[in-house]
Lab assay of single mutants.
Amino acid sequence: DTFTFTLDGIEVRLHGASEELIKTIEELLKRDIRWEELEKWIREWEK
């Protein structure tokens, strides 16, 4: 599955994202998160 969203005018596609990761990103997007914050968060998630 591919999860697609737009952040700061950039279309982002995550391939093979888990349901948990998708739900977490959706929550972060509701908080009007900035790209830099999401990028940092995703790097931490990957560890």
Rank of each mutant, 00 (worst) to 15 (best):
I10N: 06
V12L: 06
W45E: 03
E19K: 14
K40T: 12
E19H: 11
R43C: 08
R43Y: 09
D1H: 15
T6M: 11
D1Y: 14
G9P: 00
K47Q: 13
T6S: 06
E39S: 11
L28A: 10
F5S: 00
E44A: 11
E27V: 12
D8Q: 04
K30R: 13
I33Q: 03
E26L: 15
W35H: 04
L7S: 03
E46Q: 14
H15N: 11
E11K: 04
W41D: 02
T6E: 08
L21W: 07
E37V: 09
R31E: 06
E44N: 09
W45C: 08
G16K: 06
F3T: 01
G9E: 04
R43T: 08
I25A: 01
K30Y: 06
W45I: 06
W35D: 01
K23M: 11
S18I: 03
L29I: 12
F3C: 03
F5N: 00
T2V: 14
L7K: 03
I22D: 00
F5D: 00
R13G: 04
K30W: 06
R31I: 07
W45D: 02
I42C: 05
I22G: 02
F5T: 01
E27Y: 14
R13S: 15
F3G: 00
D8Y: 05
W35M: 08
E36I: 13
K30Q: 09
F5C: 03
D32L: 07
I33R: 03
E11D: 05
E37A: 09
I42V: 06
I42N: 00
D1M: 14
D32I: 07
E44G: 06
K47R: 13
E39N: 09
L21V: 12
L21I: 12
W45A: 05
E20V: 10
L14G: 01
E26M: 15
L38K: 01
E11H: 05
S18Q: 05
G9N: 04
W35N: 02
K40G: 08
E11C: 09
T2Y: 10
T6V: 15
R31M: 11
E36P: 14
L28C: 07
L38C: 03
E19D: 11
T2H: 08
F3D: 00
K23Y: 08
E39R: 11
D32V: 06
K47W: 12
K40D: 05
T6A: 04
E44H: 11
L21M: 14
I42R: 02
E26W: 11
E26S: 12
L29H: 01
R43N: 08
I10C: 13
G16I: 04
L28E: 02
E26G: 09
G9L: 04
F5H: 01
V12D: 00
A17L: 09
L21H: 05
E11N: 04
T24K: 15
W35I: 10
R34E: 05
L38Q: 00
T4W: 07
E44P: 02
T24R: 14
K23I: 08
E39D: 08
L28R: 04
L29G: 01
R34P: 05
D1V: 13
T6L: 11
E19T: 14
E11T: 14
I10H: 13
L7Y: 10
G16H: 11
W35R: 04
L14N: 00
L21T: 12
T6I: 15
T2C: 12
H15M: 10
A17H: 03
H15K: 09
G9K: 01
L38R: 00
E46T: 13
I42M: 09
T2M: 07
R43I: 10
E20R: 07
V12S: 01
E11V: 11
L14S: 00
D8E: 08
E26T: 14
D1C: 15
L28Y: 07
D32Y: 08
I10E: 06
R31Q: 12
R13K: 15
E44Y: 09
L14R: 00
V12I: 13
L7P: 00
E36V: 14
I22P: 00
G9T: 02
L28W: 10
D32M: 07
F5E: 00
A17R: 02
W45L: 05
T6W: 14
V12F: 14
E19M: 14
T2W: 11
E20P: 06
L7M: 06
T24G: 15
E46P: 08
L21C: 06
R34M: 07
W41F: 14
E37P: 02
T24C: 08
G16M: 07
E20Y: 15
I22S: 02
W41L: 12
E36R: 09
L28V: 06
D1N: 13
E44K: 06
S18H: 05
S18V: 03
E20T: 10
E27C: 13
T6P: 01
T4S: 10
K40Y: 10
G9A: 03
R34L: 07
I22H: 02
K47G: 11
D8G: 06
G9I: 03
A17K: 04
K23T: 09
T24D: 10
I42Y: 07
L14C: 05
E20F: 13
K30H: 07
T24S: 14
K47I: 14
E39H: 15
L38V: 05
E19C: 07
L14E: 00
A17F: 09
S18L: 03
T4D: 04
R31T: 15
E37N: 06
W41P: 01
T4I: 13
K40I: 11
L14A: 01
G9S: 03
W35Q: 02
I25L: 08
E39C: 14
K23V: 07
I42D: 00
D32E: 10
S18C: 05
R34N: 09
T4L: 06
R43Q: 10
V12K: 01
W35L: 10
K30S: 11
D1I: 15
K23L: 11
I33N: 03
E44F: 09
L21G: 02
L29M: 06
E44W: 10
T4M: 09
L14P: 00
E37I: 06
H15E: 14
I22K: 08
K47D: 10
W35C: 04
L21E: 07
E20G: 08
I10F: 10
T4K: 04
E11R: 02
L14D: 00
T4G: 05
K40M: 12
A17D: 02
W45G: 03
L28F: 11
K47N: 13
W41C: 05
T6F: 15
L14W: 05
I10Q: 09
K30M: 10
G16R: 05
L7A: 04
L14V: 13
L29Q: 02
K30T: 11
L29S: 02
K40C: 06
E37S: 07
K30I: 09
I33D: 03
F3V: 02
L21D: 15
L38W: 15
H15Q: 10
K40P: 11
